[in-house]
Simulated assay, not measured.
Amino acid sequence: MSYASYENEFQGKRALVTGGTQGMGLAIVKRLAGAGATVLTSARNIPPNYNIPNVHLVQADVTKPEGTATLVEAVKEKLGGIDILINTVGGSSAPSGGALALTEDHWLEELNMNLLGSVRLDRNLLPFMVEYRKGVIIHVSSIQRSLPLYESTLAYAAAKAALTTYSKGLSNEFAPKGIRVNTIAPGFIQTEAANRLIDRLATTAGSHEAALEQLMDSLGGIPYGRPGLPEEVAELAAFLASDRSASINGSEYVIDGGTIPTV
């Protein structure tokens, strides 16, 4: 697929994309930088040989206040301001076993990973956008906010639901100041982590294909017949960050191949 028509649409734009060394975050970083943006991204651990033109990589854990402070300073130093903020960091490390298996620490970890990291960054970087009366914020939520998997990722799903609700309130408050806030809700996206999970399942399922089918079935099925790709999420993010979506604000875009059974 060619995006040549939009190859320079982010020329002169300054973007921060959290979690930009793998999966959806990496795809978004490449998409924005490839279209002319100067991009700052973060990771808890710096991978070897990470070298993308127009991209600055900073080691920071955005789930902690000190990580937020590091990124805010990097925005000032390396970007001199910000036009686009895309919060992609998220995930779950809580144990399976349902609600009663989750401790206080599990809940706090999931909230920091999937909600509070975004809240802290927004709170610190919105003043830059307000000063110039323009900017775009995109939060990556999840379809689990409306389809929670209570056995394995209940705290994650609850945190993502809070992120979507928070984003809607933020969009209403800051739209009059020229700032748009939207969310993306992916379903099953075939990232590197998903591929590793499929490989593990394949040892008991019998094949890679059978493991993938098993995983899709566990999520309620994907009518389109396959998981989404990180590059497809990146293209949606690029559209929402661009002037092509200038009147889109306070919305959530689901990208799940039809998993959510709505009419």
Rank of each mutant, 00 (worst) to 15 (best):
N172L: 14
Y156L: 09
P261M: 07
E131H: 14
I184L: 14
G67K: 01
E66N: 11
L125C: 09
A185D: 11
A241T: 04
M129Q: 05
A234E: 03
Y224C: 15
L163P: 03
E73M: 10
A238G: 10
I82R: 09
K64V: 02
T204V: 14
A4G: 09
I248V: 05
E110P: 07
T153F: 05
R226E: 15
T63S: 12
G221F: 02
Y132V: 13
L79P: 03
H106N: 12
S42F: 06
N182A: 04
G117N: 03
N182D: 07
V17S: 00
N182Y: 05
S118L: 01
K76Y: 11
G67Q: 03
A159M: 05
K76H: 14
P230G: 08
A27R: 00
N51I: 13
L57D: 08
P223G: 11
G220R: 12
A15E: 07
I255W: 00
L197G: 10
T38N: 15
G81K: 03
S5Y: 10
A159S: 06
R200G: 14
N49K: 12
I179H: 09
E252F: 08
R244E: 05
A159N: 04
N249P: 10
S167L: 01
T262S: 15
N112Y: 03
E73L: 05
D61V: 04
V55W: 00
T165W: 03
V263E: 15
A43H: 10
A193L: 12
L57Q: 02
Q11L: 15
P127R: 06
N87L: 02
V130L: 14
T63K: 05
E232K: 07
P261T: 08
T88H: 00
H56L: 12
T259M: 11
R133N: 13
G220C: 08
K13P: 10
I137W: 05
N114G: 09
E235F: 01
Q144I: 04
I255N: 00
K76L: 13
S96T: 11
G98C: 07
L236N: 07
R180T: 01
T68D: 01
E104Q: 13
E104V: 12
G80C: 13
M129L: 02
E151W: 15
G90Q: 02
I143T: 10
L116M: 13
E231C: 07
S152T: 14
W107I: 14
I46L: 13
L116P: 06
T183K: 00
Q11N: 12
E131W: 13
G135N: 08
E104H: 13
A157Y: 05
A69R: 12
A193H: 06
A202G: 08
T21E: 01
T103C: 02
P148R: 15
E151S: 10
P230N: 10
F10Q: 10
D83Y: 04
A27M: 03
A37D: 03
P47I: 13
D256K: 12
V55T: 05
I222G: 12
E77N: 14
R133W: 07
A43F: 10
G25S: 02
F174D: 06
N8H: 15
E9R: 14
H56N: 12
T204R: 06
V58K: 15
A99M: 11
M113F: 08
A241M: 06
S141I: 01
A234S: 04
I84L: 04
I198R: 00
E209L: 09
N112W: 02
L126N: 01
L40C: 07
N112M: 04
